[in-house]
Design a protein around this nucleic acid. Structure first.
Lengths: 204, 204
DNA sequence: AGAATTAATTGACCAATGGTCATTTTATAT
DNA sequence: ATATAAAATGACCATTGGTCAATTAATTCT
């Protein structure tokens, strides 16, 4: 068979990522193969190599979608009011997302490009956009001129929450523990400690 | 070829895991294959299936070794003195380990058993032994009768540190950030917040 | 309209993998 | 020596990621 007019290149890109996402969510990483994705959309596996450089490339784009999906969830969460409460709301949104899309979310962090290849710039931009959501509620806690420290704290909180969800979701830490409880404690103590240090003027 | 007397079953087990560890550290997850491990120790791939149920099983045992190795590093770190200082020392040890053994450490958290299979009991015991190291320096911060909360806090800190190292080591968060700085801030603010809450009697 | 050109799609093909198991080879017991 | 039991092998299978010449359909040109 040759050039069909069923789908444009862009449509094919979307179709492929749709199918890849479905496969991933339904069957897990092991079943996310070039051939299965191609089969799902009614093309041969060779065709996918016109759209993506290779499977790694496809995964990088799929992960981009995951970051977008998470942003779409979190962006509507109100960030005003008590900083701690806002952070808890964000945390809950994050936790719920990782629960609902466990496989997608695992792939995002567990896929590694082969040696020498780097993630595209837009990946980091998508991450920064998410981090900005965490930075917002932190604003009232930092006086002007301490923006760097605010960014730093957002990263601590983001990474820490990631760790909590990661260890729980993959059952690597212990069989059962409440992610909510752990994240709640984290946020509460961290913010209190931060506030205290800031009040006493002994931040760093 | 048949039954050789070169190595006992136990020796073969150790040899295989040695080779697997070497391959993993040198080449990464992609090159950790049954055939390569077998080749490294001078046996055919079929032989490995006398020792391990399958590749997943081999990896589970390899990960057990990783947990042991981490414990061996951390167990000699002095945990007395200031809680915060002790936690920082533990954190540094952990960070250094994840740097030195990046591939081993990634595999530990990124490997998933196929659906329906569970990690062996001894895996969780090895984890608990590590968590106990974090619980120790927290002891002075909790009055008697709050052991549950102490365990809880150890888990928060452990998971959070894991998240920080994970995101940094895999370059998924941002290109460069000081893991040390992030973990230092985490420990400092968390412990301060915890102390304050405990003093004021408003824990939970 | 018909021919020439261009581009997309295919599937045979390759090397490698995880895994199985009948066969072979060796050590041990009789 | 012979029989028995255990372990090591490698042919074999299905599946994978990836390549590329051949094929086929859309587009352009005359």
């Amino acid at each position: 068979m040759g050039r069909r007019s069923d789908h444009s290149r862009d449509e094919l890109y979307e179709l492929a990522l749709d199918a890849a996402g479905r496969l991933l969510e339904a069957e897990g990483q092991k079943d996310l193969t070039v051939r299965k994705v191609a089969g799902e959309i009614g093309y041969s596996h060779g065709t996918l190599y016109n759209i993506f450089a290779d499977l790694d490339d496809l995964i990088v784009h799929l992960n981009g979608r995951t970051l977008d999906a998470l942003y779409e969830i979190l962006k509507d969460i109100p960030l005003d009011g008590e900083p701690e409460a806002a952070l808890r709301r964000l945390g809950r949104g994050y936790i719920e997302f990782t629960r609902r899309h466990k496989n997608r979310w695992n792939l995002l962090f567990e896929h590694h490009l082969p040696h020498g290849r780097e993630l595209p710039q837009w990946h980091y931009e998508k991450v920064l956009r998410l981090l900005a959501l965490v930075e917002a509620p932190l604003a009232p806690l930092f006086p002007p001129g301490r923006e760097k420290e605010r960014v730093h704290s957002a990263r601590v909180l983001w990474s820490a929450l990631h760790g909590i969800c990661s260890l729980e979701g993959t059952r690597k830490l212990a069989k059962h523990e409440s992610v909510e409880a752990l994240s709640r404690t984290l946020i509460s103590f961290y913010i209190n400690g931060l506030g205290e240090a800031m009040r006493d003027g002994r931040y760093e």
